[in-house]
Nucleic acid binder design. Structure first.
Length: 260
DNA sequence: ATGGTAGCAGAGCTA
């Protein structure tokens, strides 16, 4: 079984790449972020033709998330409980068999100390509360998405230059650590303890060519799932493509028993 | 030093 997360930065633009990649990588469940498409225009038929069910919640221009799956989803949530009237569409969750899957687009935060930064920390606290409740009732939980946080200095191409900046600041890292302290594990780091790898590179200043990246997209799993995880890698080919997203997908392989 | 590029939308915001 394979689960993947990808910030597509416009599903409209990236749809051909996405469909190609679905055919090649054959993930069972995919979380997408920054779809930037309203629900009426979500490409349901094209993704169905590629073999995927879809659940999604979007808005014009900004944000937007989706879950694609081979199997039909059970219970679906399209907003973060505690933030049901937030206009920003950043959360979708669904149950697949015995597995609860959460797809999140954590706010970027813009700049340390800004209003957007405060919004990011508040959003992360609401996510933590939701996951705390979910983990009390559900042993198998997978949380994936663009967290907009590099957990440690190994996840940063130039930790000195980035020190204290948004995406790496102490408060953001503490918020992510608080979520992981609920009993969630960073699968990439668990399976690749010393590997320096990134998932996002700025479009500007030839950042990808110079590998000036950050690892800010993550797939977290609850403790009962950790032993089922076999491999986790960054799909760099999609960042090398013509007209790429600024993020590469992260792909996790786990035993099919995870779903049972 | 506040750039640089991409997406959306049609100027300026967000990332």
């Amino acid at each position: 079984m394979k689960v993947a997360t990808w910030n597509v930065n416009s599903l409209r633009v990236r749809l051909p790449q996405l469909i190609d990649w679905l055919g090649q990588a054959a993930p069972d469940i995919v979380g997408l972020q920054e779809t930037k498409v309203v629900d009426e225009e979500f490409p349901v038929a094209q993704l169905a033709a590629a073999g995927y069910r879809t659940v999604f919640v979007g808005q014009r221009t900004y944000n937007g998330v989706a879950l694609l799956s081979r199997e039909p989803p059970g219970t679906v949530l399209t907003a973060l409980p505690g933030r049901l009237q937030d206009e920003q569409k950043r959360f979708v969750a669904a149950r697949f068999g015995g597995l609860d899957v959460v797809c999140a687009y954590v706010p970027n935060g813009s700049e340390v100390g800004s209003d957007k930064y405060a919004y990011k920390l508040g959003w992360l606290e609401d996510l933590r509360r939701y996951l705390q409740a979910l983990l009390r009732e559900s042993p198998k939980v997978l949380v994936m998405g663009d967290f907009n946080i590099a957990p440690a200095d190994i996840d940063v191409h130039d930790p000195l230059a980035w020190q204290g900046q948004v995406l790496v600041s102490e408060a953001e890292r503490a918020a992510l650590a608080g979520i992981m302290a609920l009993g969630l594990h960073d699968t990439f780091r668990h399976l690749n303890p010393d590997l320096r790898a990134f998932t996002w590179w700025d479009y500007r200043a030839a950042a990808f060519r110079r590998d000036h990246g950050l690892r800010i997209d993550h797939i977290l799993v609850s403790t009962p799932l950790l032993g089922t995880c076999r491999a986790c890698r960054v799909e760099l080919d999609l960042r090398r493509a013509e007209r790429p997203s600024d993020h590469a997908p992260v792909l996790l392989e786990l035993d099919a028993a995870a779903l049972a």
